[in-house]
């Protein structure tokens, strides 16, 4: 039989040839639990986080940001624990991305306080002059449309009732509009008057960003907490009072820390560091632990990005400016 003169037979054969690889590498894995295992430690998105995720998709953030940390040494140092398949059980669609014009975001949840994100989304260049990220001012100026939220969670099978959804939305609104909301000042600055008491698209987006990787971090933090505290108490700064190191520390501070703690270290998004009394303890060991491991509420961990030497130099610099009002 001459297949090259029979178009239909030819087409059928072509389909069969195409389907072999398709079945082996795509179709069969769909039914193998190991491809996308469920994760006990991963919680589905709340109604607000889901709306935030949809805004992330609408704006095409995935065109510049990935959400998967590869198991490579430098990548783990830069972003944190590498990504596990379980984490993505609720991701429809997946948002791993294919291009890193901006940094990976799979571990960004809890790394910074909400205020950091409000300010950053409003004007990235005001925080990082060299950044090429667009300013997303319009998000704070748009009321969050929740008319489909209940339908969305139903389609995704999260198991929330419409009442649950309403409660989640109300609770979250109460949280970000409360008088004692820690990021109130900056939220109020970027949100127009009429929307201050309401949920905006930016509120939802920030909620989503704060969820990314949080479940994984919680598990890891619980496992390592006691050991770290013990080790920290015994530490002493090797560069204390060293002039050169203090100069270097000053430069490092300007590059890495001033965004949140202010150019004069008197505090902005993060606390004032010029006082003798520090929020998380005053010894060298406490300071080292704060910087190296991070603190809840938005202090990132710097150990893997800066390394211990540079951290000690920053501490030497801070010791030089503290208490001098």
């Amino acid at each position: 039989m001459d297949i090259y003169s029979k178009p239909i037979a030819f087409a059928v054969l072509a389909v069969v040839v195409i389907l072999v690889g398709t079945v082996v590498t795509m179709f069969i894995p769909l039914f193998m639990p190991a491809t996308q295992p469920p994760g006990d430690f991963v919680k589905p998105y709340t109604a607000v986080e889901l709306e935030g995720r949809d805004i992330y998709i609408r704006e095409g953030c995935n065109n510049c940001h990935t959400q998967t940390v590869r198991p490579l040494r430098t990548e783990v140092a830069r972003y944190g624990e590498y990504s596990k398949p379980q984490e993505f059980a609720y991701d429809r669609p997946f948002l791993w991305g294919s291009r890193r014009t901006g940094p990976d975001l799979n571990r960004v949840g809890g790394k910074y306080p909400d205020s950091w994100h409000y300010q950053h989304m409003d004007n990235p260049q005001a925080m990082f002059q060299q950044s090429n990220m667009p300013a997303y001012r319009w998000l704070a100026q748009a009321r969050l449309d929740t008319s489909y939220t209940a339908k969305k969670v139903a389609a995704l099978g999260y198991g929330y009732s419409p009442q649950d959804v309403q409660r989640q939305l109300d609770d979250f609104r109460a949280r970000v509009t409360a008088v004692d909301y820690p990021s109130k000042e900056i939220r109020n600055k970027v949100t127009p008057g009429a929307l201050k008491g309401d949920l905006t698209e930016l509120d939802a987006l920030v909620a989503y960003l704060q969820k990314l990787g949080k479940d994984v971090k919680t598990v890891a933090a619980e496992a390592s907490a006691p050991k770290a505290a013990e080790a920290a108490a015994a530490l002493k700064n090797p560069y204390e009072g060293n002039r050169e190191s203090i100069e270097e520390g000053k430069k490092l501070f300007a590059e890495n820390c001033s965004v949140c703690h202010g150019a004069d270290a008197k505090g902005k998004l993060g606390p004032d560091l010029t006082t003798k009394k520090k929020k998380f303890g005053d010894t060298d060991g406490d300071l080292y632990a704060s910087i190296a491991k991070g603190r809840p509420g938005g202090m990132p961990d710097w150990e893997k990005t800066l390394g211990s030497e540079k951290i000690w130099k920053v501490i030497a610099y801070l010791r030089g400016i503290e208490g001098k009002q």
Partner: peptide, 24 residues
């Protein structure tokens, strides 16, 4: 995909499966 409105839908596949189908 599963539609929720005329302008919005969610992929039928989740996570790593979605990634595998997408790059296939």
């Amino acid at each position: 995909e599963v539609p929720v409105s005329w302008f919005k839908s969610y992929s039928l596949y989740a996570g790593a499966n979605d990634a595998n189908v997408e790059w296939w």
